[in-house]
């Protein structure tokens, strides 16, 4: 049976792993290659590397680091941050990345999603969506590392990028990110039910039960966390045993 994926996310700045609490207050959590190898041994199903400075500072992506990661780990990984053209993606895939994640560039230029899917196949095109809920707006999509509100309602935007060729949605709730109060189950479930492609729940994981809820309540296909894993507050083997006991298909 296809298993639910547990995905540690490594935010990268200047070649180092960082994790922002609500995208602010960044702390250093180590060397990405070492951390990646450790996660692969621990049973992580996949890894995500986001170059968090790329969008803000217009920096070019981190192909050298991607190469180094690909050289050392034998599980799949997705890279994102600052991708704005087909040529950027070609460099990353040729460096050994399995998937790319695009966010602001898709909002700026939705055609990019279609171009990438045509050139490389939908299976390597993940669209990352940062979403925030307010009573006035409902769940809206935010661009540029969560700093700019867009006109897009979250479920509509997810459906649109899937129609354009996205093969996966990485959905981060800005309300939940860094809170350890659990994933945003309502919007994750709404997106998961609206689209035909896998959805990664992101933002807010604090306990093992939160992961079970993401899979059983919100029907996510994968769940992502960062600081929880980086600071060893929760171990992946323990998490997988817990999920297995809950009747959730996991690779153990």
């Amino acid at each position: 049976m296809l298993t639910k994926r547990i995905i540690p996310c490594l935010d990268i700045k200047n070649g180092r792993t960082v994790k922002g609490v609500r995208f602010e207050n960044i702390r250093d959590a180590g060397d990405p290659v070492e951390l990646a190898k450790w996660y692969a041994e621990q049973g992580a199903d996949e890894l995500v590397f986001l170059d968090i400075t790329a969008t803000n500072e217009e920096r070019k992506t981190f192909a050298e680091l991607v190469r180094d990661i690909a050289k050392h780990i034998d599980i799949p990984f997705t890279v994102g941050g600052g991708i704005s053209a087909v040529a950027d993606v070609e460099v990353l895939l040729m460096a050994g990345a399995d998937k790319v994640s695009i966010n602001s560039a898709a909002i700026r230029n939705p055609q990019l999603v279609e171009d990438l899917a045509k050139r490389f196949g939908s299976q390597c095109v993940t669209v990352a969506i940062d979403t925030k809920y307010t009573e006035d707006t409902g769940w809206k999509v935010y661009a540029r590392a969560g700093t700019v509100e867009t006109e897009h309602a979250t479920v509509d935007w997810a459906s649109r990028v899937v129609d354009l060729g996205a093969g996966e949605i990485l959905l981060t709730s800005m309300n939940n990110d860094g809170t350890k109060a659990g994933f945003a189950l309502d919007v994750t479930k709404a997106v998961s039910e609206a689209v035909s492609v896998p959805v990664i729940a992101s933002g807010g994981a604090g306990t093992m039960q939160h992961f079970a809820d993401a899979f059983q309540v919100a029907h996510a296909d994968a769940a992502l966390a960062a600081s929880l894993f980086h600071f060893r507050e929760l171990s992946i083997p323990d998490l997988k045993q817990f999920l297995k006991a809950e009747g959730i298909a996991v690779r153990v």
């Binding site: 296809l2 298993t3 199903d45 299976q123 996966e168 896998p198 994968a222």
Partner: peptide
Amino acid sequence: KVPHMGWNQLEKLQSPLFGGIAEGEY
């Protein structure tokens, strides 16, 4: 969901290609 994405099990293995690989390996 399509793509079929993630870890799934190999079954009915019948080739030297799968020497040392257990039925149900991911």
